[in-house]
Structure formats: structure tokens, C-alpha cells
Amino acid sequence: MHVHHEINDDIKFLAKSEIRLKILSELYEHPDDIRGLVKKTKITYSSVSSNINKLEANKYIKKVEKKYHLNPLAEIYFKTLMDFKKSIEIIQNYDSFWDKHNINQLSISSIKSITDLKNAQLIETTPIDIYKTHNTTKNQLIKATDVKAIFPYLHPEYPELIENILINEGSVELIIPRSIFKAIISPIDESLKKKAVKQKRLKVYTVTESLNLYLTICDEKMSLGLFKNDGSFDQNRILISTDKKAYEWADELFKHVKHVVRQ
């Protein structure tokens, strides 16, 4: 299948000039005149003036009572361009997290919303704290009431952590490989399990194919881990966030994986 997409001339026109982009980002914040723009941006009067003319000729801005304003439609075009800029920043800021990692199980929609992770924090292990990533998610799991998680591998502490959540009347929804189902679920107290399943507080979806994603949503906190391209799980890095946007992002991703798994 061929993707029919092309970067059109309007996008190029804006992206081509840093000066035009800077002027638009200033006007997006506050309408201003040329002198004000020169003062704020430190770009010369002649450059500001000539680019203002080009932007006006292309209907991106208009002059109202001595000040230049972004046209409403131009404002949306500009926002989408800045959204793309932010997505590049997120890719670069967490470069070690994405680079050489398997992202096959991220949905297209979650990749297109990657800017929702803008306030996320990259947690990396250090030589003096080699369990930092595991302990971070473990702490989230200990404090959580409602947990949704994709566990692609078994950690010996998981059964107890899950059991405690259920003891405290919390709910747990898991997506795990079939191969670890027994090991993760069997150690949990039988009557507790039965009660939780009956009350719909324990749901487990198993998959036969491999899971290439580690995701926990503990109440409103999320953490995300990836596999390296060589097939091993990267235990040294996770992306965590307590931000609402990131929580919603993770929740969407969980729903997506669940949907794929159930199909």
C-alpha cells in the first residue's frame, strides 16, 4: 500500500523561514505591530517588515487597528505545525527510550498523540540504583487502588502486589502472555480471586503471541517500558507520568491492546 501524502507548498512556505515562524509564534501569543515584534524578537526591522508583508499577502495575518493578528484559520494551521514541532521534541528528549526499541505495539493513534507525553519523566537506572525502574513502578502498584497493566514478563513480586490490591478492594485488569498466567495468578489466595472475579475487580486477558510493551496505569499514574530491537526487555528505562493527558494516553493504548488481544 502506498501512502499518498505530500508536504504541500503552504507547509513549506511557513517552515522555510525561522523568522516567519518566530513572528507567527509571537503574534499567536499577542497581536503586535512591527516595532513591538522587532523589540521582542531582536530581528531587524527590515526582516520583520518584509516577512510581515509575505505573511499578509498569503493571508496568514491581517492588520487590525495598527496591530497584526493571526487569521483564525492561520492560527489553526500554525498550531498543528507547532504540534508537529512538539512531537519532534518528545522524540528527541526521550531519544534513548525510543531509539533501537520496538514500538510495533504502539497504536498509530497513540503515536499521533505522542505530545500527550510532554510532561513525562524518563526514569533510568544508575550503577548505584540498578532497580530504580522496577522500584518506581512497584511503588505505584503498592499505592494504587485501580490498576490496569500490560505485563509482558513475570516478576516474582507481581502476584503479591496484585493480591494486596485485591485485599484492599481495588481492581486489577491485566494483559499478560498465556505462558505466565499460571505463575502470576496461582499464588493469589483462591477465595480472594474468586470474589474479585465475581465482583469484576479482576480481569485477565492472555495472549499467545508476544507482548512488546510494558504498561501500568495505577490510578492516574502511568509508566511505559519498551523492548529493545534485539528482543530483550529494556529494564533500564521507563517513561512515567502523573499528568492527566499522559494517563488518558496510556488508557487509550491499554484499550487498543485489549481490543487487538480480544480479536
Binding site: V3, H5, E6, I7, N8, I11, T80, L81, D83, F84, S87, I88, I108, I111, K112, I114
Partner: peptide
């Protein structure tokens, strides 16, 4: 993927 989103 994000560039395609921009184009779309």
C-alpha cells in the same frame, strides 16, 4: 507518523 498527521 507525526509528519503524516501534520499533512492530514
Amino acid at each position: 507518523t507525526n509528519m503524516i498527521k501534520l499533512i492530514e
